[in-house]
Structure formats: C-alpha cells, structure tokens
C-alpha cells in the first residue's frame, strides 16, 4: 500500500518526528524527518516529495511558509498541516493555500497514515 510514497515530516518537537517516522516506515513509506524548518525547506528545494506533513508553529520558517513554498514550487505535493492550535483563522488560511488537510494534536497515528495515503494518491494523479 505504502510503496513508493515519499513523505517529508517536519515538526520542531522530536517526539512527533521520531514516532511518525518509525510508524510510517513500519508501513513501508519512505520518510525523511526534520526538526528544523530551514533544513526541511532546503531539502524540499532538492527533492520533490509526494506528501509533506508539517507542524504550524515553529522557530524559523513556519508551517505557513512551508506551505507557501510547496504550493509555489511543487504544486502537486500535498501538505498535511498539524498543530496544537485549532484556530479557525489558521484553518481558513491553510485551506486557502491549498493544504490537503488540517489536523490538531493530539491525533491518532493511524488516522494520519490513512490521510497520507489518500494525499499521496492525489499527488501521483496531479503529477501525471
């Protein structure tokens, strides 16, 4: 199921990165995880991912910046935004910027996997 799905995970808190990476790799996805958003953006400049899972509020470039970058440079890449702040303004803004989905912490790990698989399908479709 998860064959050839390439995911970039970005969260400044290590537990989210580590656990998501471990879980998604266990499902056969290819995962690169970053705790520093500048490094993640640098990696995004080099490589195109199917799905980017990003935290919203981080030091340096924020989730919103990452989202803008993706939609500007790699429109087929799907972004899932995770955050502890369930503010409606954030939701509207991410939606306007074309985020695939918006989830708040705490979230079920299995659910985010399902979301990633669906998002990846759309990414592959938009690539072709």
């Amino acid at each position: 199921m998860g064959k050839n799905i390439e995911v970039l995970v970005l969260d400044d808190e290590a537990i989210v990165c580590e656990r998501l990476k471990e879980f998604l790799e266990g499902k056969g996805l290819k995962v690169e995880a970053f705790t520093e958003s500048a490094k993640a953006v640098a990696r995004l400049r080099e490589k195109k991912f199917d799905v980017v899972v990003t935290d919203m509020k981080m030091p340096g470039p924020t989730g919103m910046d990452v989202l803008k970058f993706i939609k500007g440079e790699q429109p087929s890449t799907q972004a899932i935004v995770i955050t502890a702040y369930g503010a409606i303004e954030n939701f509207r803004e991410t939606e306007a910027l074309g985020a695939y989905e918006y989830v708040t912490k705490p979230f079920q790990i299995a659910n985010i996997y399902n979301l990633i698989v669906k998002a990846a399908k759309r990414a592959k479709k938009e690539q072709t």
């Binding site: 537990i15 955050t83 705490p106």
Partner: peptide
Amino acid sequence: AEAEESLGGDFLFDMQYLRR
C-alpha cells in the same frame, strides 16, 4: 477524557499540546 485517551498510545502529541 481526551488526555486520558492520549495516554493509551494510539495518539501522538507533544509539549505544545501539553502546555495548551
């Protein structure tokens, strides 16, 4: 209830969530 459920291990959360 949400916090207790989160301890079950099915959920993922971080310090940001705990502070909130």
